[in-house]
Amino acid sequence: MFVINCPYCGERDQSEFSCGGEAHIVRPKQPTELSDDEWAEYLFMRKNIKGVQFERWNHAHGCRKWFNMVRDTSNDKIHAVYKMGEKPPVI
């Protein structure tokens, strides 16, 4: 179980958080103009990276804020956390 450094609350136990999957998949502004393929790409297709992954987390049992995390999925090491809207760090 990780310790996650919530950008709003500081270090808290992982059990307070929930994961929202891959980050920086922006919801299309004009979904109706996408082909079925393009929509499926947004909706379902994921990189599912083994290694350094950018992902969304929510401090569900805390401040309820969503934020982004850079985590290595091959060893669960957390490299960085940053707020929504902030530029992703270079890892």
């Binding site: 929202g20 922006v26 969304r56 929510n58 309820r64 969503w66 929504m84």
Partner: peptide
């Protein structure tokens, strides 16, 4: 709803 509100 929070997810959409905060992230999208």
């Amino acid at each position: 709803l929070e997810d959409y509100l905060q992230t999208e």
